[in-house]
Amino acid sequence: MNTTEEFAGQVVTDMSATLSGVMTSLGNKLGLYKAMAFAGPLTSQQLADKLSLAERYVREWLNNQVAGQYLQYHKNDKTYELPDAYVPVLADPESPVFLVPALEVAASLWHDEEKLQAVFQTGEGIPWGAHHHRLFCGSESLFRPGYKTFLVNDWIAAMDGVLEKLEHGALVADIGCGHGASTIVMANAFKHSKIYGFDNHAESVKTANERAQLESTNHNVTFEIKDAQSYPTTGFDLVCFMDCLHDMGDPVGAAEHALKSLKPGGSLLLVEPAAGNGVEDNINPVSRLYYAASTAVCTPCSLSQDVGLALGAQAGHQRLSEVLQQAGFIQIKQIAQTPFNIIIEAKCP
């Protein structure tokens, strides 16, 4: 991109996407995408009638979606169509590529903009719980489909002997569990195992207990308000850090505590945002998204805690391995990768 005009075009594209993100969120919350999924071409009136919405607003929303190439427009009969291939991304909450909840995270950042301006000037942090509440629900909704799709059959299955342990009955600790999405997936999959979810955010633990009751998994899952260095070292077979180690002020200390809490031969499962090992490896849309979240959420979260190592959401395999090695883990290896995550296994000495 060599000219001012070309760069201005990129910025206009970004601004268009930013404003249209509100339209995408509305499309999800009003059920517009779901109503169009596999329904074929629809007029604006037909779609409005299906959802008891005002046609004029629906028509303008549809035109925005066509302009952004989220929908197809058939000019001969003035109908609009959601391509089948787009349904998993826009209309299926169980799909691992259902990306609309990321807009809740984006909304929370706008709410917190003044806080971010302040920490840029002071160098201080922002605790996780001090962010706007849309961050918490958005993060849960964004991560949960991936956990449901990959956690058991791909990630745990790729670990050395761990799947068999959990099937027969084991103790598992899910650190930084948030609303319990990953904890509940494991509790549902491994009925003979006892799964503990630990998080230092009281409101998230409350929500996690509510989620467990809704799914009737509370017989083998327990949630407690504990941080990454205060939960019991009672001899776990598996300790998990799901998209959270980089948020911690002292990730080395958290990993050391995990090592102490594992039985001999126990394993650690580390799930982190996908990233290369250097900035030059991370020039892509996914890393751009993660660097933004890291600037606004992950780095301030770490800096609000003791040590404040501030790994950031794009630490990469090499830096994460160094943290685990410093904590005393051995046999550290990447066992899986998705477009959004890298998955690392580590063993006790």
Rank of each mutant, 00 (worst) to 15 (best):
F143W: 05
F143D: 03
R144K: 12
R144G: 02
R144I: 07
R144V: 07
R144Y: 04
P145H: 02
P145W: 00
P145N: 01
P145S: 00
G146V: 06
G146K: 08
Y147H: 15
Y147K: 12
Y147Q: 13
Y147C: 14
K148T: 13
K148N: 15
K148S: 14
T149H: 15
T149S: 11
T149Q: 14
T149E: 14
F150A: 10
F150C: 09
L151F: 11
L151R: 10
L151K: 05
L151E: 10
V152S: 06
V152E: 11
V152G: 08
N153H: 15
N153A: 14
N153F: 13
N153G: 15
D154H: 15
D154I: 12
D154G: 08
W155A: 05
W155F: 14
W155E: 09
W155P: 12
W155Y: 12
W155V: 05
W155N: 08
W155T: 07
I156R: 06
I156M: 12
I156K: 09
A157V: 12
A157H: 13
A157C: 10
A157Q: 15
A158H: 11
A158I: 11
A158M: 13
A158G: 07
A158C: 11
A158N: 11
M159N: 06
M159T: 06
M159K: 06
M159I: 10
M159V: 10
D160V: 12
D160P: 12
D160L: 14
D160H: 15
D160E: 15
G161K: 08
G161V: 04
V162P: 11
V162R: 08
L163F: 15
L163I: 09
L163D: 14
E164M: 13
E164C: 12
E164H: 14
E164A: 15
K165V: 03
K165D: 10
K165S: 08
L166R: 03
H168Y: 13
H168W: 11
G169A: 00
G169H: 00
G169D: 00
G169Y: 00
G169T: 00
A170I: 01
A170R: 00
A170M: 01
A170H: 00
A170K: 00
A170S: 02
L171P: 03
V172F: 07
V172T: 09
V172E: 08
A173G: 03
A173C: 06
A173N: 05
A173S: 06
A173T: 03
A173L: 04
A173M: 10
A173K: 04
D174C: 10
D174N: 12
D174V: 05
D174F: 05
D174P: 07
D174G: 07
I175D: 01
I175F: 02
I175Q: 04
I175N: 02
I175T: 01
I175S: 04
I175E: 03
G176Q: 01
G176Y: 03
G176K: 02
G176N: 02
C177V: 01
C177I: 02
C177L: 04
G178E: 00
G178A: 03
G178R: 02
H179L: 11
H179K: 09
H179N: 08
H179V: 04
G180Y: 06
G180T: 02
G180C: 02
G180N: 05
A181N: 05
S182H: 08
S182Q: 13
S182N: 07
T183R: 07
T183Y: 03
I184Q: 11
I184S: 07
I184Y: 09
I184R: 12
I184T: 08
V185Y: 05
V185H: 03
V185G: 04
